[in-house]
């Protein structure tokens, strides 16, 4: 159990690192899909298969397709850019923040050891009740978010096209 989890988590962190180190955007998006699949596997092992399915289909499927589409439209930038913050400084800052977080969470992490919990799958009826009845406000918020996203994308993608079209018409 622990062995499986170690392999999955180490793989996820490795994929995330590779996606940040990759020079080509397309390669970066594919490593991100790998991270998403491994995180979904970890979630499944932890006893939340509903979330794992959604994470796998949305995170590794839909978002990857969107990335490939956007990179196809926007194009790769072949020049290797120097980062704005010096690399040693950014690595040091990140290491410091993670160390501080780990230090703050250390009592909690150690108390997890004493809890000695076992991973168990809740029944589907429990999840249905929690999702549709107890968290019904979240469902409403999700519907609003989806509509807001669709409207935002429509506005972003159609605005300049119509503006460009009208300017072309005026030039003629």
């Amino acid at each position: 159990m622990v062995g499986v989890m170690v392999v999955v988590i180490v793989g996820a962190i490795f994929c995330a690192l590779q996606s940040m180190r990759a020079n080509r955007l397309l390669v970066s998006a594919l490593w991100l899909a790998g991270t998403s699949a491994l995180v979904a596997l970890a979630i499944f092992v932890m006893g939340a298969p509903e979330v794992a399915v959604i994470e796998l289909s949305v995170g590794a499927g839909l978002v990857t397709v969107l990335f490939v589409f956007a990179i196809n439209v926007a194009g790769e930038e072949p020049i290797k850019l120097k980062p704005l913050v010096p690399r040693p400084l950014s690595i040091g800052l990140v290491a410091l923040s993670i160390l501080l977080l780990g230090w703050m969470g250390m009592p909690g992490l150690l108390s997890i050891l004493q809890l000695n919990v076992t991973f168990s799958l809740p029944s589907a009826a429990d999840f249905t009740r929690a999702f549709w009845e107890q968290r019904s406000l979240d469902v409403v918020a999700q519907i609003v978010l989806v509509f807001a996203g669709v409207l935002g994308v429509l506005g972003l993608l159609s605005d300049t096209e119509t503006a460009g079209g009208s300017s072309e018409e005026t030039q003629k």
Binding site: M5, I9, A12, I13, M20, L25, V39, L93, I98, G105
Partner: peptide
Amino acid sequence: SAANVVAVGVLGLLGVGFYGLLATRNLIK
């Protein structure tokens, strides 16, 4: 325990994401 491993994974992914935000200049990245 497996929960400790997941906690370390949460911190690790957080670190990689922070580093990416600091180090990249490409909007898609």
